[in-house]
Design a protein around this nucleic acid. Structure first.
Length: 357
DNA sequence: TAGGCCATCTGGTCCT
DNA sequence: AGGACCAGATGGCCTA
């Protein structure tokens, strides 16, 4: 709300135009170079924000504007109440310009900062189970799932718990909204396993939800008090990674086998991680590369399984193997550089536990 | 239409 | 002084 009243003649539209903010909108966008579609679409929004700020009157410049007007009033003979406190500088044209330039610059910085944050979040999504370009997890769900993922992997490392176990899935789904839980559960049980997915079945039918394994009890993870965003469709990107713990010997349906409701694969699936820092695969691989490395129909994760040293679980958990520790194998997924260095990945967890980082 | 999610702007605060 | 970070406010888009 307004913390200070406008001057007598101050009107929102007048202020906006007097400060040149309408033109600034153009300046601000051109300063950033090309404007994103969202920004263009949000023109009204940004203007609204400015108007909002104008009505909020939080800035010193608005106060100064007010001061100027008060002075004018005084000069014209009307008795405006004297204001106490230090006299503020006059808002000259030059000061206005400087302020505007500063604000525009700050806005651009803030925008790019948020874009960086979102990029990092996207990178995080890519190394999460169930990454899908079309059905992105929300920010909050991504963070929750990431936390759970780390937690669950820690459990795998420490207790040798099988990543295919019910407990693993439950850990992953702790605190997630139900749709996300179902998504994760669906991902993790694409291969043979006891976990049954209720919602996914509705959507894709047993061909996906019950693929390759005996049907069990539907799995549902209620999250009381949490919102239920509409994540329904599954792109089985990561689950094969999880399957990787079991070894490459599976036959599995391709993610696109979902007969209805699931959008087609539309981009690189979750990249594997690398402990070595030698990242062969790019997130945004060329079509050729992506075909080579992320072949949805053949199951790109299956490719990883066979060529990137996924650990092989045994009855007791993970099987051992070169270079001397099963967990090392577990971490040998490959990561794009930016993912590896911008965000924490499970490989860091594994590696740090092994003292390699 | 309400609610969730998001992008953006903005002013404040802290740090260099 | 300027930049980074943060939180609040706002409006758009989408879905149930």
């Amino acid at each position: 709300m307004m913390t200070k009243p406008f001057g007598k003649s101050a009107d929102v539209s007048e202020l906006v135009s007097s400060l040149g903010w309408l033109e600034e909108e153009e300046d601000g966008s051109s300063q950033d170079g090309e404007q994103s579609p969202e920004m263009r679409g949000r023109h009204g929004s940004t203007l609204g924000g400015r108007l909002h700020a104008c009505t909020e009157l939080g800035s010193e410049d608005m106060e100064e504007e007010e001061d100027e007007e008060e002075e004018e009033m005084g000069a014209s003979g009307e008795h405006a109440p004297k204001r106490r406190g230090p006299k503020k500088k006059k808002m000259t044209k030059a000061r206005q310009e400087r302020f505007r330039a500063r604000r525009v610059k700050a806005n651009a910085r803030e925008r790019s900062r948020m874009h960086g944050l979102n990029d990092a979040l996207d990178n995080l999504r890519r190394v999460m189970p169930c990454y899908s370009k079309t059905q992105k997890l929300s920010k909050i769900e991504t963070l929750r799932l990431a936390r759970n993922y780390i937690w669950a992997l820690s459990e795998v490392l420490e207790s040798g718990q099988s990543p295919e176990s019910h407990g693993f899935v439950e850990m992953l789904c702790k605190g997630l909204s139900q749709p996300t839980s179902n998504l994760v559960a669906g991902c993790l049980q694409l291969g043979p396993g006891p976990v049954m997915l209720s919602k996914l079945e509705d959507k894709c039918g047993p061909g996906l939800a019950g693929a390759g394994g005996p049907a069990g009890q539907p799995l549902s993870y209620p999250s009381p008090g949490l919102p239920s965003p509409p994540y329904g469709s599954l792109e089985a990107s990561h689950l094969l990674q999880m399957k990787g713990f079991k070894g490459p010997a599976y036959d599995h349906p391709s993610p696109n086998e979902c007969s209805s409701g699931t959008p087609p694969y539309d981009g690189p699936l979750t990249p594997p991680l690398s402990i070595s820092g030698n990242f062969a695969l790019k997130q945004e691989a060329s079509p050729h590369e992506s075909e080579r490395n992320f072949t949805p129909h053949s199951g790109h994760h299956a490719h990883y399984l066979s060529s990137h040293h996924y650990p092989t679980p045994t009855a007791g958990g993970l099987a051992g193997g070169p270079p001397g520790h099963p967990l090392f194998q577990a971490s040998r997924y490959e990561l794009p550089l930016d993912v590896a260095f911008d965000s924490f990945t499970p490989s860091h967890l594994v590696a740090s536990q092994m003292g390699t980082i």
